[in-house]
Design a protein around this nucleic acid. Structure first.
Length: 864
RNA sequence: GCGGAUGUGGCGGAACCGGUAGACGCAGCAGACUUAAAAUCUGCUAUCCUUUUGGGUGUGCGGGUUCGAGUCCCGCCGUCCGCACCA
């Protein structure tokens, strides 16, 4: 074929994407002898269009997948759609389209965009969570978990929007109002489905220790989220002996320092007392109105209401503690009640000072063991116990053990572990989600749908002209016969939280039989995922839920893996400069993806990158010529208009230039600032490589060029190591450096080999360019039809080390000269050469050498 | 408040186990080619002093350890992220 002077990316992209599809290049094989490797990127929500963040995410995974293929692995690299969720319903309400049609159209559009990136994906395994063949299997798993006792129903409060007649997530409640309707949100008690993730709290916490290929940050976040606290739970009795309430404490050692007992405004006891105490009822109502935002909590005063009741301190029944209702005690942690020990807890101290309650020291602070505590800063450090009878002199830990032993012996308290982690409420009063496969029968109660009646298909003939969940109004779907008694019954109209859908999709990718969720044997071949890549925003919920499902399914014997993701990588965001023109009056924007932006002042008009032009050292609005202020580099968002459409970029520069730019410069875990100059630079490099690849047959007169061969082989090993470690920016730098070296070298057999080898080295990152160049190589240089099937070059160990080294010579730690010596010389030889170097000899002439430090093959430091 | 990360040229960043700081890229400057432009190629590009040679300074700030510190230790400062009245 005649070689084009320029690499025509657009035509080449399409040609090679078609060639891979025709050859079925990226099908993952369940059988075969090759080692298996599972590369997974978090599957996208089909919002409509791919954004640059997706491109970065999937490019990284793709480079790893292609590299693993070249190094002899059978690679599973699948793609699918997290297709249920609210935006589809919002679109339905706003635009009058059907959520299903909207979602499926989006999937089709986004699939096309992903394919134009040239991703090495096994599309035969594609799935969408909104299709019955997926969610039907999810229903089956849900029934299995239910049968195993891991699913339960209980009453729980939800945020209820009375205008939209819908339940809102916490993030959708802004200043107490529904984000869409603006109506005041009510707390509504509903009977809901829960998954018993708390049964696995210990396991999920312990399991983090083995996840050594996860970022410490994520492990720590999960640890905090699970929030294990060990302490003591004990019961108070009212003065006179009537049982009062239970409290939890992590500091039982300070019980002798108690000066009051406090219960939450939401505590049942508070409600009971309030029945006959209007003042308290008012106080409780006041507390409930209190904001829960970070700033409000920070500044909120400690408020209390003295009930007039008193309880006995169980360790010292003669001491009576007043019972207060207190705004800083939370009902949903521990037992919703505490004992207050002001000397050793800052909150209790603030409270005690305000209401003039006693403050008794029970832990000595150095020499200070005075029971009368005077500071306004609680002492939370270590020290011997004081003023505490039989605990005196003990360490905190010993005192804890002693008092728990006493409490257990006397039967008023026990050793307890409390978790921050709550059971996972999975009910959503929403249409566009997985129907929960249960039926409510007036006679039999809540009855599971028999498995042979699965899937419970979500009816598509619904409308959104009336507020509320259309499933509630769909009579032919809702009304069914009870599977147990055959009587009239109704279906559960709640659907599952979409986090359930994403908690097992990686199993379905590995194995997707038609008649069950997955095949355990096949799952075992692929799992755990070798490398999982996604955004840090999923550090807690998705990753914790996926770990929980995997463990739960393992516990009930469906799979043989406990942790789904052996290695996790959280990539940074793609950012961009912002442009704004001040002085205009634009309404505040609301992000279509549900990002409610409240921080931009109404007088600012944001401009998109293609609405501005850079000239004469300034930035101006294209339409008006008005000067534009260049703002901070921030995450791309619709409201700031600093988004770049990847499709347009691929169209303009080709997939490989876009991929290359995504991998360049910024380390993958950090934010990547998108710039016009950067993508153009990537495009120029694609063209430069193309020209270089054309020289793979120019051997010139020269024979071997050992220096260049060394550089090539060092690059082979270096790039492999960098890609394996996901240090793509370093791999990119090495490719650049090697290309520079090859370009500068005189024609030789070695140079021709390097040109040919470079094709393979860039194949994972720039696959279309590589295929095009590969096809142009002489047949004897390519053992496969496609470079996608070629092997990674083998680095020759003999060429990985240089035969000469540059040695730095320092005098008193300052660099004064360098010399080039043969590698591996002994210390004496190096020292002699260093001292003989002309500039050094001049510097040290007439002085006495105190010491000469020689680091072989590296440096010499002369101490005068 | 608690926990974590991070700080290197105009910019993104590199630097192994403490051993030549600034690789590679972007931007910029100068030159070559061209009627011209684009493209491409070549060179320069931390900073200060010096004509050059060369020298001083320099990895957020202040100390310390060491023959030698971006890297280790102590104390600050800034930025970002997570959690947050969690008993």
């Amino acid at each position: 074929m005649t070689r084009e002077k320029r690499f025509g990316a657009l035509a080449a992209d399409a040609r090679w994407q078609a060639a891979w599809a025709a050859a079925d290049s990226f099908r993952a094989h369940d059988d075969g002898d090759k080692p298996k490797y599972y590369v997974l990127e978090m599957f996208p929500y089909p919002s409509g269009r791919i954004h640059v963040g997706h491109v970065r995410n999937y490019t990284m995974g793709d480079v790893l997948a292609r590299f693993k293929r070249m190094t002899g692995h059978d690679v599973l690299h699948p793609m699918g759609w997290d297709a249920f969720g609210m935006p589809a319903e919002n679109a339905a309400m706003e635009k009058g389209v059907h959520p299903g049609g909207w979602t499926r159209d989006n999937i089709a559009a986004m699939r096309g965009q992903l394919k134009r990136l040239g991703l090495a994906i096994d599309w035969s395994r594609e799935l969408a969570t909104c299709e019955p063949d997926y969610y039907g299997q999810e229903q089956a798993l849900f029934l299995d978990l239910h049968a195993a006792g891991l699913v339960m129903r209980k009453e729980s409060y939800v945020n209820w929007d009375p205008v939209d007649m819908t339940v809102l997530a916490n993030e959708q409640v802004i200043d107490g109002r529904g984000w869409r309707s603006g109506a005041l949100v009510e707390k509504k008690k509903l009977s809901q489905w829960f998954l018993k993730i708390t049964d696995f709290a210990d396991e999920l916490l312990d399991g983090l220790g083995a996840l050594d290929q996860w970022p410490d940050k994520v492990r720590l976040m999960q640890e905090n989220w699970i929030g294990k606290s060990q302490g003591m739970e004990f019961s108070f009795r009212f003065v006179g002996g009537e049982p009062a309430f239970d409290v939890f404490t992590t500091r039982p050692d300070t019980l002798f320092g108690a000066s009051f007992a406090a219960i939450s405004p939401d505590h049942p006891l508070a409600a009971k007392i309030a029945e006959n105490a209007p003042d308290l009822a008012d106080f409780i109502a006041h507390c409930r109105r209190q904001g829960t935002s970070a700033a409000e909590v920070e500044t909120a005063d400690k408020l209390g209401f003295d009930t007039g009741l008193a309880v006995e301190n169980p360790i010292n029944p003669n001491q009576h503690l007043p019972v207060w209702v207190v705004n800083y005690v939370l009902m949903d942690y521990g037992t919703g009640a505490i004992f207050g020990c002001p000397a050793h807890d800052q909150r209790d101290l603030d409270f005690a000072r305000k209401y003039e309650l006693p403050v008794i020291r029970v832990v000595a602070d150095g020499d200070d063991s005075d029971a009368h505590f005077t500071s306004d800063t609680a002492f939370t450090g270590a020290g011997p116990i004081v003023n505490s009878h039989f605990l005196n002199g003990m360490s905190i830990d010993a005192a804890k053990a002693a008092i728990i032993a006493r409490a257990e012996h006397d039967d008023w308290g026990r050793d307890t572990t409390v978790w921050r982690l709550r059971d996972w409420g999975v009910s959503r009063q929403r249409y566009w989600g997985t129907p929960i496969p249960f039926i409510h029968c007036p006679a039999c109660g809540v009855v599971p749908v028999p498995k042979d009646q699965l899937p419970v298909v979500l009816p598509e003939d619904v409308t959104f002209d009336v507020p509320g969940n259309p499933l509630e109004r769909h009579m032919s779907w809702k009304h069914v016969a009870c599977p147990a008694c055959g009587g009239a019954a109704v279906r559960e109209t709640d659907t599952l939280d979409t986090f359930v859908d994403s908690s097992w999709y990686f199993l379905r990718f590995a194995s997707a039989p038609a008649d069950r969720p997955f095949d355990a044997e096949t799952v075992k071949k692929w799992l755990p995922v070798g490398q999982y890549i996604g955004g840090i925003e999923h550090a807690i919920l998705h990753l914790l839920y996926a770990r929980f499902w995997t463990r739960a399914l393992a516990k009930i014997g469906l799979i043989d893996v406990k942790e789904p993701f052996a290695a996790l990588f959280t990539q940074g965001m793609v950012t961009h400069e912002t442009y704004r023109r001040t002085g205009t009056n634009e309404p505040v924007a609301m992000d279509g993806e549900g990002d409610f932006e409240r921080d931009n002042a109404p007088s600012v008009k944001w401009l998109s990158p293609d609405e501005v032009e850079k000239r004469d050292g300034g930035v101006f609005e294209r339409a008006t010529g008005a000067p534009v202020e260049v703002g901070r580099v921030v995450k791309m968002s619709k409201s700031k208009k600093n988004v770049v459409d990847p499709d347009a970029m691929i169209e303009q520069y080709g997939a490989d230039a876009v991929r290359w730019f995504m991998l360049s410069d910024s380390p993958p875990e950090r934010d990547l600032p998108w710039s016009e100059a950067g993508i153009e630079g990537a495009w120029r490099f694609v063209q430069r490589l193309w020209r270089l690849f054309g020289q793979a047959e120019q051997t010139g007169e020269g024979g071997d060029d050992v220096a260049l061969a060394r550089k090539l082989h060092q690059a082979i090993a270096g790039i492999a190591g960098d890609v394996e470690a996901l240090h793509f920016n370093k791999a990119v730098a090495r490719v650049h450096a090697l290309a520079n070296d090859v370009e500068k070298a005189a024609p030789s057999a070695s140079r021709a080999q390097a040109c040919a080898a470079l094709v393979r080295l860039v194949a994972p990152m720039m696959p279309h360019l590589a295929e095009e160049a590969w096809a142009g190589l002489p047949p004897e240089l390519r053992e496969t039809l496609l470079v996608a099937d070629a092997a990674w070059p083998v680095a020759d160990p003999a060429l990985l080390v240089d035969d000469s080294v540059t040695i730095a010579i320092q005098v008193m730690g300052k660099l004064r000269d360098t010399i080039t010596l043969a590698k591996g010389l002994d210390r004496d030889a190096i020292e002699a050469a260093a001292l003989a170097a002309p500039r050094i000899a001049a510097l040290i002439a007439g002085t006495t050498l105190k010491k000469v430090i020689v680091v072989p093959d590296r440096l010499v430091n002369i101490v005068l």
